[in-house]
Design a protein around this nucleic acid. Sequence first.
RNA 1: GCGGGCGUCGCCAAGUGGUUAAGGCAGCGGCUUGUGGCGCCGCUAUUCGGGGGUUCGAAUCCCCUCGCUCGCCCCA
Length: 429
Amino acid sequence: MNNFKNLRGTVDLLPDQLIKWQNVEKIIVEQLLRSSVKEIRTPILEMTELFLRGIGEGTDVVSKEMYTFLDRGDRSCSLRPEGTASVARALIQNGISTKPFQKLWYMGPMFRYERPQAGRQRQFHQLGVEFVGYESFRSDVEIITLAWDILEKLGIKELNLEINTLGDNTDRSNFQKAFLKWLEVNKNSLDLDSQKRIEKNPLRILDTKNVQTKKILEDAPRLVDFLSDKSLKRYLNIKEQLKLLKIPYVENFHLVRGLDYYTHTAFEITSGSLGSQATVCGGGRYDNLISLMGGTETPAIGFAIGLERLIILSGNKLGESRETDIYIVNKGIHAEKLAMDLSRKLRNYDLIAELDLSGASFSKQFKKANKLKSKSIIVIGDDEAFKNQFIIRLFNNDNSENKEETISIEDNIKLEKWVKSNLLLHKNL
RNA sequence: GCGGGCGUCGCCAAGUGGUUAAGGCAGCGGCUUGUGGCGCCGCUAUUCGGGGGUUCGAAUCCCCUCGCUCGCCCCA
């Protein structure tokens, strides 16, 4: 096989699949618009250092999953593995202090060098939303609600929202001390992976999938018990407001997001029908990130939704394309000229008008129209062209008799009338 | 990076050592060169992911390799 193939973990999205993507994206963007969230676009390529500092060198994402290379000027560059760091960078660089409150979204490809599997690719797509400058617990609730509503608007069912709090820096370091003490005592009962994490990232041990370790962890100290009054109050407020909004959630004390910059609220939305990569949305508060990256201290919260996983979950209804409204069968030198002009006229009525360019026999062109399930058809051949007219008729799929009408080329009024009564009436506007 | 499953036409597949690689869908052409569906007829893999080996003989057995897929790790 000497043909070219796409790179591992990447896919071609073909026209048929893109209908669903476009519909999903449209619904998302509309909901964002209604929530007055504004779009931001940052480069896909950034200097590697940005991600090292923004995401954390110790994380798997950065330490073993980045697409990193030297450019021709020997600068180390990386394809973005996620969007938050870039957005933070862009805001700092463009003067965050002049616009301290911003609700932003972005959508686009991300890159992570991993083994592909169901719902996971090396190039994948995320919708990210970041509320920057917002500190109140109500911004946490609003952003969780936004994620929830987007998924609901897409008609996705059987979703589980899990929430947790990581407290502020002081809470967390108090907890960590106690937790480390406990870990020391119980070290030998833990699985190997978890043992390694004691040094590297002890919080992540809470997140283990090892059944044995999970059981042992039931007796470990809990982070909630180390929250300051203020942090606790914050968390309780969020839960209360979610209840008020009737958004069902489950508390999960073991929910610890993988990236270093999170504080307070962490949340995740999962679906059982996704296989082992069940998370469709992950997010949380990151009050430390922007100052950590050299900006003025700015609280922020955000989430990311994996579009591939969203597509898997979205119903088939979103995959249906708009049918051809009118197919123009045309043959003969003069007729073909008139037909092309006609096709433009029809598109001005916001119709999907397809002009047959094959020059094939009438029979062939009719078959094509039928295959496309075109709602109507125009026929223009030498006979019609000679009389400066064309034939138009509805084109039912059951092949029943359909009345046809002859319209003169110049008779725009008659054409418009026909189009309005036969095609535009049925359109959902 | 580590484990399991799988690779035969654009898609779904039969074939499991003996020579013509079924069949279905899609596609193309014809019956019908100015009229749709259905039907009928015909065409479409010198080759079974790639390389090497065993054998008189390989899609079928062995080795290597590549790819896909599912899971682990991690995450969206």
